[in-house]
Design a protein around this nucleic acid. Sequence first.
DNA 1: ATAGGGTTAG
Length: 657
Amino acid sequence: MNSRWIFQKLTPPFSSWISSFRVLSSAALFSSQTPKYSLNYAETSTLLSVCRREGNLRLGSSLHASVIKDLQLYNLNLPYNFLNALVVWNSVIAMYWKCGELGNALKVFDDMTVRDTISWNSIISGFLANGEFELGFGYFKEMLGSVIYRFDQASLTAVLSACDGIDYLGVCKMLHGLVTSAGYDTEITVGNALITSYFKCSCFDSGRRVFDEIMERNVITWTAVISGLVQNEFYEEGFNLFVKMRSGLVSPNYLTYLSALSSCAGLQALKEGCQIHAIVWKLGIQSDMCVESALMDMYSKCGSLDDAWRIFKLAQMTDEVSMTVLLVGFAQNGFEDEAIQIFVKMVKEGIEIDANTISAVLGVFDTGTSLGLGKQVHSLVIKKAFGANIYVNNGLINMYSKCGELEESVKVFTKMQQKNQVSWNSIIAAYARHGDGFKALLLYEEMKSQALKPTDVTFLSLLHACSHVGLVHRGMEFFDSMQKLYRITPRMEHYACVVDLLGRAGLLNEANSFIKGLPMKPNALVWQALLGACGIHGNMKMGKYAADQLAIAAPDSPVPYVLMANIYSSRGKWKERARTIRQMKEVGVAKQTGISWIEIERKIHSFVVADQMHPQSDAIYGILLLLLRHMRDEGYHMLDKMFILNYIEEAENASYM
DNA sequence: ATAGGGTTAG
């Protein structure tokens, strides 16, 4: 084979065709057998770059073969051809590494008698882009030590963009020093790469500082810093810079708008999000798939699920990303079943299921979601080899823990090679949720010994754990160290946890004065915690107070009435109970019917109170009564004694017995 | 040199 056959249908001069090759697919050039024309250097390297872009190894390697052959024919090793030959060899190297053929790329590089900076940059990028970091950085070092070859801005951006993750922070800093000492700090591409790398290495301050001190900013500089901030959850800072950018001379581009939409999603800034929607509409890019997903995400995170749904319905194309956005949108807006349905639909329709989709659907699982389905998702994880993905594993820990399989959670956690704070938070919460508060605290100690800093969520789990094993003192110590040692400002959720901690332990007065001392107005969560504690300890007086406060803080909630009614009935105050129920109906707050269910052989059986709909209803009630009699006979009187005795009495008089 | 979606408590 040689390259000439490719051009049978084309007319010379080829040079004029070169620009059209850039848009032509190489496959379109793949037809003839009759060799007519010979390719010059420029044509060869252009075609090679088309192959590189398309990953067309087949055509690329035959071009390589023809180059070798032409070298013999035309004696390209002659000195005056050297630069041209160099360009061709560099193109061959680049073509090979883009096709993943590092071995071939390296062989060409090694065989070259003369190389230039581009050859070195190409082989370095090749290794780095294919995950061979040691080799890539190794060749870069060799280049640094060379007296013949000089690195340039492209070498620097190549190694900088490989600095991805905290492990590379040291390298990144070293390169920053090199940039300055070699005088490349005025080079805009280098500055942009530095910003991006610092953000990828979680060194946000340095990234921001490079941005602040950079001489010249183009749209990429702005977008790099905005997206860096947004991807690391500094939504407000990112959005503010976007606003600042719009009042300056550099116009945002399509990628800037994507990041700006992400910031609105993170800030739940619906109004600002709508404004950006208007801008992208005006620019005519509102139907771009990425823009659509970003818009959907913004709307659903701002609570406007309807708008997200409308965009999805009207979209010409949807893919796994937009469906995942919708899935999370459903889940976070209270439509868990619909979220699961989207996942099922994706699997059935053969839509690509990636690690993001898996972790998203795992997040939908809650107490009562079918464990069987969870196991199916787990088997998909194994089948798709997502076992090393930290988000997926964290999702599995939570799924199993919420579905009641603590041991499975522990198994996933133990097997994880890489653990982050979320992994530890999840396993601590899993033990707390299953009542093993001591083990949860033990794991916290272990987490600290791994040099992982606890987060605000860690403390929620710890307080929860302490609360359930009655470790009031320990819990208060955590609450203290959270603020003093870790500089975490407590959120309302933390306050509610402390109230729960004190209240459950019977320290209702302490809980109440804790609430009085709060630096902000307590919300419904806090009052509900106090009311719940009053329920446990049967304190009607403070319970009434908490219930009244809760009814003010959450006027649409049935909870104050229901919990208060329960307190009354546990104390045998039937009249007060009836009055509370009547009051609830008068206020018009709907109490959601409690449903319990059980999954037996892939079928879910659900029950509401006094349900007689099940085909085996009689038999079920028979067993229930049997159990209750056992409880009564064994003197079980810890909880809701009156309910049980009442129920047995009623049942024994009822017609179906 | 910039690129849409994912996990934690209640």
